[in-house]
């Protein structure tokens, strides 16, 4: 399956969804003008991938900021992983937060409560 790569901008994250390279990552800031337009290709890719995924998929989410409109779309992404898990595939979300960003850490825990997908939480320091 062809990889999806979206370059980071000042209001939208970098997205790498690469089955061959075994890299699934969303990182940066997410407050695009139109969240549906931005996330639709991501959801489409994952829904396609879901039909024939690897036995184990780890999605890295390393966002420094996301707005509430994006939060809904992030949940949609996680729900696709949940479906993959229900279909017997191994999935893991690795949720990265800045060590000082309690709100981002809390957001990770909140998502973990909302979907039946294993989470691993990690923190990083400012570059």
């Amino acid at each position: 399956m062809e990889a999806l790569r979206i370059q980071q901008t000042d209001d939208s994250p970098e997205v790498i969804l690469d089955q061959e390279g075994n890299c699934f990552e969303i990182s940066g800031k997410s407050l695009p003008e139109d969240v549906f337009q931005f996330y639709q290709p991501v959801l489409d890719w994952l829904n396609e991938y879901r039909k024939k995924p690897k036995p184990f998929t780890r999605l890295d989410i390393k966002l420094s900021y996301f707005n509430t409109a994006s939060s809904k779309l992030i949940l949609d992404i996680l729900m696709i992983l949940e479906e993959m898990k229900e279909e017997g595939k191994g999935v893991l979300v690795k949720w990265f937060s800045l060590a000082s960003d309690e709100d981002m850490q809390e957001a990770g825990r909140e998502y973990q409560d909302m979907v039946d997908v294993p989470f691993e939480h990690a923190t990083y320091d400012k570059l």
């Binding site: 549906f36 409109a69 809904k72």
Partner: peptide, 8 residues
């Protein structure tokens, strides 16, 4: 279509 839902 533009987002929202009172989440803000």
């Amino acid at each position: 279509p533009k987002g929202g839902a009172g989440l803000g």
